[in-house]
Simulated scan of single mutants.
Amino acid sequence: MPEALVLDADAVLWSTDRSAVEGRHLLLLLHGYGADEHDLYPLRQYLPDAFAVASLAAPLAPPWPAPGRSWYPIDGLDGRDSSHVTRAAQAVIAWIDEHAAGAASVGLLGFSQGGAVSLQAMRLDPRRFAYAVNLSGYASPGEMPQDAELAELRPPVFWGRGTKDDVIPEVAVTHTTQWLPEHVELSGRVYPGLTHSVSEQEIADVAAFLDKRLTALDGAGKV
């Protein structure tokens, strides 16, 4: 069995003192392949202030000369093997257990690989995560033991992608288009002309989605 992946806690970028996460709504940012914890962190200025934001660093280094970090390998025929995605998602859950167990809620926002890992983490432990945002990512193929529970809970998921995104294979997009509505409360948008990237309109849509999540979470806490 492969050795478990471990995230570097010292590499995490926090929008607040990490000791102040207790009782806060926590939003985790998971970057894409070849990026690092700095990539998505600037998005925090466009998102609701009520969130404590933690931008995680993926555990692997991609093959030279690719820069940055990766959540799982993409080289070779097994590059999109679900077991790689699952292993990365397990590392995210282990990090939460150690560093953010006291958060009032945990949400996930991932780009590309980070989006795939976000959905996989939600599939591993459906009750742990309040929602997920998947930007230019996909749902990993295959069945997971908790998929039926996920489909019963139907947590909110935002999926955004561009019509000019030529990085994610069409077969993965087709699978995700079918899989998400069967398992989650899906919202999202396809952005004309957008490549494998994030646009201002998409950020605005994500902010609106997160505002709704805050309203629902705070309302649930008052029941």
Rank of each mutant, 00 (worst) to 15 (best):
1 M>T: 12
7 L>N: 00
7 L>A: 00
8 D>K: 02
10 D>V: 04
11 A>P: 07
15 S>R: 02
15 S>G: 02
16 T>W: 08
20 A>T: 13
24 R>F: 06
24 R>I: 04
25 H>Y: 12
27 L>N: 00
28 L>F: 07
30 L>H: 08
41 Y>C: 05
49 D>G: 13
54 A>W: 01
57 A>H: 07
57 A>T: 07
57 A>S: 13
63 P>K: 14
64 W>P: 11
66 A>W: 14
68 G>K: 02
68 G>T: 03
70 S>N: 12
71 W>P: 01
74 I>A: 05
75 D>A: 14
79 G>I: 03
79 G>F: 09
79 G>W: 06
80 R>W: 13
81 D>Q: 05
83 S>D: 12
84 H>N: 11
87 R>F: 11
91 A>E: 04
92 V>A: 09
94 A>Q: 09
97 D>L: 02
100 A>T: 09
102 G>N: 06
102 G>H: 02
108 L>M: 07
121 A>P: 04
127 R>Y: 09
128 R>K: 14
131 Y>R: 05
133 V>C: 05
133 V>A: 05
139 A>W: 10
141 P>H: 13
143 E>G: 13
143 E>L: 15
144 M>T: 14
145 P>R: 01
152 E>A: 11
154 R>D: 10
166 D>V: 13
169 P>D: 11
183 H>S: 08
183 H>N: 13
186 L>D: 05
187 S>W: 02
192 P>L: 08
197 S>A: 15
200 E>P: 11
205 D>N: 02
205 D>A: 03
206 V>Q: 03
206 V>A: 05
206 V>S: 00
207 A>Y: 07
211 D>G: 15
211 D>P: 06
213 R>L: 09
213 R>Y: 04
215 T>S: 12
216 A>G: 01
218 D>H: 13
222 K>F: 13
223 V>F: 10
